[in-house]
């Protein structure tokens, strides 16, 4: 497997509701692409930080008649979690996404098969894009690492 790309970054809660897209060129159609993605931490353990966030959300989203009761039970909503999801676009368009919670993921795309969430098919040469959708960062910092590899066969 040849490494095409490795990136690391650090996010803060300000990055919630943003997308980070990495765009790269593939010169010859590979038989297979592999993507490794991880981020950390997953869970916000600090209840001093969680509590006001949960209270704010209940105040914003729950009918006033039920809000007080929900606020008394705020711990039901802990632990809050970071959620980053990955999607892939080939030069022709959308090739799938992995909207799920585990913070360590490995995906492959090939002609005849693909990891759950992704669409099998030829891997054309040209500009590819991998997008990290930052649904939510609740921890003061969240680091991520993304690596892309290409392979000549379905190894």
């Amino acid at each position: 497997m040849n490494e095409l790309l490795t990136i690391e970054g650090t996010l803060t809660p300000l990055s919630s509701k943003t997308h980070i897209t990495y765009q790269f060129h593939i010169d010859e159609p590979p038989a297979r692409l592999a993507i490794e993605f991880q981020y950390s931490p997953k869970v916000l353990e600090d209840s001093e930080i969680s509590r006001p966030l949960i209270m704010e959300a209940i105040g914003k989203y729950v009918d006033p008649s039920a809000a007080d009761l929900q606020k008394q039970q705020w711990e039901r909503f802990t632990p809050l979690q970071n959620l980053l999801t990955l999607s892939v676009d080939d030069p022709e368009g959308f090739r799938g996404s992995a909207h799920r919670h585990p913070p360590e993921q490995r995906h492959t795309l090939a002609v005849g098969s693909a990891s759950p969430g992704f669409i099998p098919g030829v891997l054309p040469a040209g500009i590819w894009r991998i997008t990290i959708s930052v649904h939510c960062v609740v921890t003061p910092a969240c680091t991520y690492r993304l690596s892309v590899y290409k392979g000549r066969d379905a190894e």
């Binding site: 919630s16 966030l53 959300a57 914003k60």
Partner: peptide, 13 residues
């Protein structure tokens, strides 16, 4: 439409 939203359930509201 009225589920709790972020950060409890991201984008759910």
């Amino acid at each position: 439409p009225y589920s709790l939203g972020s950060p409890i359930c991201t984008g759910c509201h």
